[in-house]
Simulated scan of single mutants.
Amino acid sequence: MPISRAEIPADDAEALIDQLCQRWSGEHAVAKRDAGVEVTFATGSCYLVAEPDKLVVVVEAVEDEAHDQLEGEVDNTLDALRGVELDIVWEA
């Protein structure tokens, strides 16, 4: 299972998580966990954790192609919420 992680600078990480949950809750399962939120997609999961100065995102998928698609979904949704293209660096 491919897994990647990104740390996105954000003073409002909790608000971003709330917005992502609202955006995705109609199509995907969203569950609050102790440390953050898990969003379950058909082909994998996205874990969101708010830290004081950043949003930590972990993407896990069943296969490489699905993993790339999930990273793209997260990128595109965050870009749309921010209104600018973010330079998100995914680390394996």
Rank of each mutant, 00 (worst) to 15 (best):
G83E: 07
I17V: 09
V30A: 09
H67K: 03
D87C: 03
A92Y: 05
R5A: 02
N76Q: 14
D64T: 13
A31I: 09
V57L: 09
V89C: 05
V59Q: 05
L20F: 04
W24P: 00
K32V: 03
Q69K: 10
I3S: 08
E51Y: 04
A92M: 06
D11N: 12
L81V: 07
A29R: 15
R33S: 08
K54M: 14
F41C: 06
Q22M: 09
V37C: 13
G44D: 05
V49N: 09
A6C: 06
C21L: 06
D87F: 04
A61C: 09
I88W: 00
I17T: 07
L48E: 03
V89K: 10
Q19G: 00
A42N: 08
Y47E: 02
D64Y: 10
V58Y: 03
D75K: 00
A31R: 12
G83H: 11
D64G: 01
D64Q: 14
V30E: 09
D87N: 11
V89I: 12
A50C: 05
Y47N: 01
E51L: 12
I8Q: 04
F41Q: 08
V57G: 02
V58I: 14
L55S: 07
M1S: 08
E38D: 15
E14D: 11
P52M: 06
L70S: 03
A35L: 13
A42H: 12
L78P: 02
P9H: 09
E91V: 03
V49Y: 06
L70C: 08
V49Q: 15
S25H: 13
A29V: 11
